[in-house]
Amino acid sequence: MTVGEWLDWAKADAAKRGLPDLIGPLEGLAQATERLRAADWNDDADKDTPVESPEAK
């Protein structure tokens, strides 16, 4: 699902649920999601994710 398709669905759902105030925040979230998807760690799904140092666990 593209971010645009997701946003259309989410806004329609929010309206259906009687939450019109949610439209603005959802548009902000859509911009953040666009940015997240554009991050370069998404470029190669086969690439290993860095392993956090064990002290963090």
């Binding site: 997240l36 998807r37 991050a39 760690w41 998404n42 994710t49 860095p50 392993v51 956090e52």
Partner: peptide, 8 residues
């Protein structure tokens, strides 16, 4: 995606 970003 965010989980991967957290590790990065």
């Amino acid at each position: 995606r965010a989980l991967r970003g957290k590790a990065v």
